[in-house]
């Protein structure tokens, strides 16, 4: 699903690499936590998977494709098989819940019939059935994140990337979001989640990858958060 071979990333005008010689593999259907302090390279790691950036050395394979050799015009096709969720939700404030989710399908040219079918389905899945016509501003943070997850999942991606999805939420709401991500993972979707939330990592007992100053320092199955702030 994801394979990093000796990957390094140096941003232009910076001497210290954001990632140094990282090698790892994530199998289909896995749930992986990515932990590490700020500046440890978590975001760079995710950006490489999304091909927002290209690595400086090594090779990144996502969904069996070498991203360095993927031409620019094929990147959108690749991204259609990925879903992304962020700490700040990134919803469109002037569109309803259903329109926000439908947007992800409209812009890749899905038919209206398909949209009408899949949007209510995915909203039910994330527990927002009946709230289709609400505006994002009327929803709680947890509900907004559910909309964002629905939008990420509506195109049935093979891989879900979550960048601190619970970072803005209280512990109780976070648990709800984690249950949802776990359910999505059980449908066969691989989930990679960057987080700072110690409780969640410790409770879920999933694979943990820890980065420190751009190096891979721990890769542990059924791991715990493990490092102190």
């Amino acid at each position: 699903m994801i394979r990093f071979d000796n990957v390094s990333k140096v941003y232009p005008k910076q001497t210290r690499p954001a990632l140094r010689d990282v090698s790892l593999e994530v199998e289909k259907g896995e749930f992986v936590f990515l932990v590490g302090s700020s500046g440890s390279g978590k975001s760079t790691f995710l950006r490489l998977i999304l091909r927002e950036e290209r690595c400086s050395h090594g090779q990144v394979h996502v969904l069996g494709k070498d991203l360095a050799r993927l031409s620019n015009w094929k990147v959108p096709q690749m991204r259609r098989q990925l879903g992304t969720v962020f700490q700040d939700f990134r919803l469109l404030p002037n569109k309803t819940v259903a329109e926000n989710v439908a947007f992800a399908q409209e812009v890749i040219g899905k038919s209206q019939g398909e949209i009408r079918k899949s949007v209510p389905q995915v909203l039910d899945l994330v527990g927002l059935g009946g709230k289709e016509d609400r505006m994002p501003g009327e929803l709680s943070g947890g509900e907004q994140q559910r909309v964002a997850i629905a939008r990420a999942f509506v195109n049935r991606p093979k891989l879900l990337i979550a960048d601190e999805p619970t970072g803005n939420l209280d512990p109780q709401t976070s648990v709800g979001i984690m249950k949802l991500l776990d359910r999505i993972n059980r449908t066969g979707t691989t989930v990679v989640m960057a987080t700072h939330d110690q409780n969640i990592v410790d409770q879920m007992r999933k694979r943990v990858i820890e980065l420190e100053k751009g190096r891979l320092v721990r890769d542990q199955a059924r791991g715990v958060y493990g490092y102190q702030h």
């Binding site: 015009w73 469109l92 992800a104 890749i108």
Partner: peptide, 12 residues
């Protein structure tokens, strides 16, 4: 930004 992430083509 959202369009990019969900894989809308450059043309679109």
């Amino acid at each position: 930004g959202i369009m990019r992430l969900v894989g809308a083509s450059g043309f679109y």
